[in-house]
Simulated scan of single mutants.
Amino acid sequence: MADTTATNTGASCMDKLKSYAKTQKGFILAAEIILSLIVLICYAASRYGGYTAVAIIEMVFAIIFFGVFMMEIDKQFQLVNWVWSDLFRAGIGAVIYLITSLICVIGGRGDGALIAGGVFGLITGLVFAYDTYTIFLQIKNTRQHTAASTDDRV
């Protein structure tokens, strides 16, 4: 899943961070982290701070997966299927962000911070949905199809 071009084992953590953030997956995860932080700030500044849990949880999971893929732990720790775990994380994040953001935008009259958090939450939900789509395409492309035998002899 970690699509780094150079696997340099002696590279420092900052070098790995810079090189992974330049990949497509790294850029998407970094965008999810930054947008979740913006949504968290907006929700925390509003009168109703109950929606901050969504932003905190999704930001923490995005940071964890960013770290796992950046440090290539997914290749070392094969017990967990990281691609499917990432698909579920991104899919659930997209659904939760879209639902809570619509609630905040529709019912947030008089609270500008809540409406701003809802708008940024909708954008973040779309980024999570795009991440889900790219992961799904990756799973679809890596699936091996074996041809059925047409031999009549058994």
Rank of each mutant, 00 (worst) to 15 (best):
Y51P: 10
T5K: 09
H145E: 15
V60D: 11
G67H: 01
I106L: 08
A55M: 01
T134R: 11
K75N: 04
D152P: 15
Y133N: 10
K22D: 14
L137K: 15
L35R: 02
F77N: 01
T52H: 05
M14R: 09
T132N: 06
G50H: 09
A113L: 07
S36C: 14
L79Q: 07
L122Q: 09
T100K: 02
R109D: 14
C104V: 00
D74N: 12
A90P: 04
E58N: 10
K140C: 12
A129C: 05
K22C: 08
I96W: 10
L37D: 07
G121S: 12
W82G: 03
D152G: 13
Y133R: 09
D131F: 08
V105A: 00
D3E: 03
T23A: 03
Q144R: 15
I38H: 06
Y51A: 07
D86E: 08
Y130E: 00
F69D: 01
K22M: 08
K140A: 14
F65I: 04
A113C: 10
A147G: 10
C13Y: 14
G121R: 06
L17M: 10
L114N: 03
A147L: 13
F69H: 00
G125L: 05
L17R: 01
T100R: 01
K25V: 02
I33M: 15
I92K: 00
D15P: 08
A94Q: 01
Y20C: 03
I139F: 15
R143P: 09
I41Y: 11
R89Q: 04
M71D: 00
I41A: 10
I33G: 00
T134M: 08
I135P: 02
L102N: 11
S46K: 12
F128Y: 14
A2C: 13
A94K: 02
I73Y: 03
I28Q: 05
S149M: 07
K25A: 00
I139N: 12
S85H: 07
S19E: 09
D131C: 11
S36V: 08
Y133C: 09
K25Q: 07
F136C: 14
K16M: 04
I34G: 05
A30H: 00
T124P: 13
L98E: 07
I41M: 09
V119F: 15
Q76N: 05
K75C: 00
K22V: 02
D74M: 03
G118W: 06
T4N: 02
F128A: 02
V83M: 06
D111I: 00
M70Y: 05
K25G: 04
V95N: 01
T4V: 05
Y130T: 11
E58Q: 10
I123W: 13
F136R: 09
G121H: 13
L114G: 00
S149K: 10
Y20D: 06
C13D: 11
G49L: 05
V39W: 14
L79A: 06
A6K: 08
F128H: 04
N141C: 14
Y97M: 01
I73N: 03
V154G: 12
G110F: 03
S36H: 07
M59H: 04
F66D: 00
I34T: 11
A55W: 15
I33A: 02
T150I: 09
G10M: 08
L35H: 03
D111V: 04
I56M: 15
Y133Q: 07
L102R: 07
V95D: 08
G117R: 04
S149G: 06
F27Y: 07
D74K: 05
V80T: 14
A2R: 06
C104H: 03
